[in-house]
Amino acid sequence: MEFLNFNPRDKSLKLEEAPVPVPAENEVLIRVSFAGVSETDIQTIEGSYPRKENEDAVLLGREIVGVVQAIGSAVTTLSVGQAVAVNPNEGCDVCNFCRAGGYNHCQKAGAASTPEIWRNGGWRTHALVPEKQVYLVPAGVTLSQAVLAEPLSYLAHSWAKINPVEVGTGTLVIGAGILGFLWASLLHLHGLRKTVTIIEPRIKRRKLFEKLDLGFRALDIDDVKGEEFDLVIDCSGAGSATETALTSLGSGGRLCLVGSTNPLAEIKFKPFQATRKEFSIIGAHINQFTFGRTLSLITAMGDTYLDYEKLGIGVYKLSRYEEALAAVKTGDITKAVFKF
């Protein structure tokens, strides 16, 4: 198999080859069709995202879809040839968080077991995944759409936490990366129209956003100074953007933090703002049993919202990884996806 190796010691990437692995009794061997490049991947390469210390090389990529090539002897729910998507998050099933339905807070598994951070991910032609984390892709959903299930499952978890979001809610989305584009699409799907604004400092990204043709405003940060919103969704992960979000909240407003935040980011905050305006700050961490529902959500969104050209997604061969990562960093695309 071909794979893209990441060396955490010197932050280098190298294309290599190895024999195709054999699944253990509870594992599924997936012939990968598409693997996404997440913000966490980029932060990991840059060295800003936490991971195990003194580790050997690891494969990045937690957004994985493909076709079942082989199954372990104990696998009962899947068959060779089926199209599948991988939920990168799991729980230990025995801690208090897991037993209360919150595996996203599990200290033993949860984000602590996510491929690309703590174990090998999907930037390879063949991936071994535990059966419990593999989901069938519904009929009518393409694999190129299904590879967006992981970031969309994060949105689905966030959506459940901020609901209700009524039609007419004055909404500000911060950051025109792929999360911002998907949030805008989700809001539009749920009936919001001219009350949504997205802000982004880079002109390239604002131009890309116009391709979505949702009828939402795409502005620079300074263009919304003085405006107040009922709901602010911060997809940027930047501390400075969160400060902007807090000052943009109206009385009784809600701020939802959903970006892949740099762990070292800090903000200045005046508690008086919260008591005077009675606003709420809502954090959302990975997904919480939303992956299966997200595949149904993808069915509803379809080509109308998940068109790669409109979303600004670039598709690359794994061998073009340097070009793909550079295009994301410069803002030429919102997201890169490797096609195998």
Rank of each mutant, 00 (worst) to 15 (best):
P138G: 03
L295F: 09
V68W: 11
V315Y: 02
L297I: 04
D234Y: 00
A184K: 06
N7I: 03
P88E: 03
C95T: 05
F34A: 00
R206V: 05
L208D: 01
S12R: 11
K108Y: 05
G302W: 13
V224L: 04
K317H: 09
A24E: 12
N120P: 01
E63W: 13
L152A: 00
D10E: 07
T330E: 09
V165Y: 02
P130N: 02
R202Y: 14
L295E: 05
S296D: 12
I267N: 08
F34R: 09
I30L: 00
T290D: 15
A109Q: 15
D307N: 10
A284E: 02
D10R: 07
I221E: 11
A336Y: 09
H188T: 03
W123T: 08
E322K: 13
N287Y: 09
R202T: 06
G312H: 04
A336D: 01
G170N: 13
F229R: 02
I203S: 14
S153V: 02
S48K: 15
K211C: 02
V141R: 15
K108L: 12
P21Y: 09
N89A: 12
A100V: 03
N120H: 15
A70Q: 12
E27A: 06
L246G: 03
E131I: 00
E243M: 06
G81L: 13
F97S: 10
G177A: 00
P50W: 00
G36H: 01
Y103I: 03
E16W: 14
V129Q: 14
F272I: 04
R99L: 10
I313S: 01
G61K: 09
L246Y: 02
M301V: 02
L186M: 12
L182W: 04
V37N: 01
E322V: 07
A284P: 05
A324F: 02
V141I: 12
F269I: 11
A324P: 01
G331N: 03
L78R: 15
G331W: 11
A57C: 10
K132A: 07
Q273Y: 10
I64E: 12
Q133G: 04
C95V: 06
V165G: 01
D10W: 12
E243V: 01
I45S: 03
V68S: 12
M1R: 15
L246H: 04
L318G: 07
S296C: 11
F338R: 11
E243D: 08
I221T: 11
H285R: 13
L219P: 06
T171S: 08
W123H: 15
T76V: 10
F272R: 14
V328Y: 09
A241L: 04
G175I: 01
I298Y: 07
K52E: 12
K335D: 00
P151Q: 00
T330C: 09
P151R: 00
K310D: 05
D93N: 07
G180R: 00
L187I: 04
H285C: 10
F291D: 11
A218E: 09
W159F: 05
A265R: 03
V173R: 00
Y154W: 08
Y49E: 00
Q69G: 06
L148Q: 02
R217W: 03
K329Q: 15
T261F: 11
I282E: 08
